[in-house]
Amino acid sequence: MRRLIFVFVIIHSCIISKAQDQIQFVKTDEDKATVTNVKCGANNPSGLVFRFGNGLADFGEYPWMVAIIKISDTSSTQWSDKDYLSAGTLIHPSVVLTSSYGYEKIKPNELKCRAGEWNKKAEDENYLHQERNVRRIVTHKDYFKDSFYNAVTLMFLEKPFDLNEAPHVGAACAGQALPEPGTQCFGTGWGNGAFTNESDILKKIPVNLLSVADCETKMRETRLGEIFRLHESLTCASSADDTCKTEVGAPLVCPVKGESTRYVLYGLSAYRIQQDGAPCAYVNVPAFYSWIGERMAEEGFKSDSYTYVP
Rank of each mutant, 00 (worst) to 15 (best):
L154C: 11
H140L: 09
F161S: 05
L157H: 00
V134Q: 10
E158D: 14
L154H: 07
A122I: 05
V134A: 11
Y143A: 05
E131H: 06
E125V: 09
I137C: 06
L163K: 02
L157V: 03
L163C: 02
D142P: 05
F144W: 13
V138K: 10
R132Y: 02
F144Q: 15
E165H: 14
L163I: 08
T139L: 05
D146C: 04
A122Y: 03
D124L: 05
P167Y: 06
V134N: 09
I137M: 15
L128H: 13
M155F: 15
H140T: 02
E123F: 09
E131R: 08
D146P: 00
V138N: 06
D124A: 03
R135P: 01
L157D: 00
F148V: 07
L157F: 04
L154S: 09
R136A: 10
D162K: 04
Y143Q: 06
K145M: 13
T139G: 03
K141M: 08
Q130G: 10
K145L: 14
E125S: 11
N133M: 11
M155T: 05
V134I: 13
I137Q: 11
P160W: 01
K141Q: 13
Y127V: 11
E123A: 14
T139E: 02
A166N: 14
A166H: 10
V134Y: 10
V138H: 06
I137D: 01
V138G: 03
L163W: 01
V134G: 12
M155P: 02
N164W: 01
K141S: 14
H140N: 13
T139M: 05
T153M: 13
F161H: 03
I137G: 04
R132N: 08
E158N: 12
R132V: 04
E165V: 11
L157I: 03
H140Q: 08
A122L: 11
Y127S: 04
H140K: 08
R132S: 08
D146E: 12
N150Y: 04
K141C: 02
Y143S: 08
E158M: 11
T139I: 13
D142I: 00
R132M: 12
F156I: 05
N150V: 00
S147N: 10
Y149S: 08
Q130S: 10
L128P: 12
D142C: 06
T139A: 08
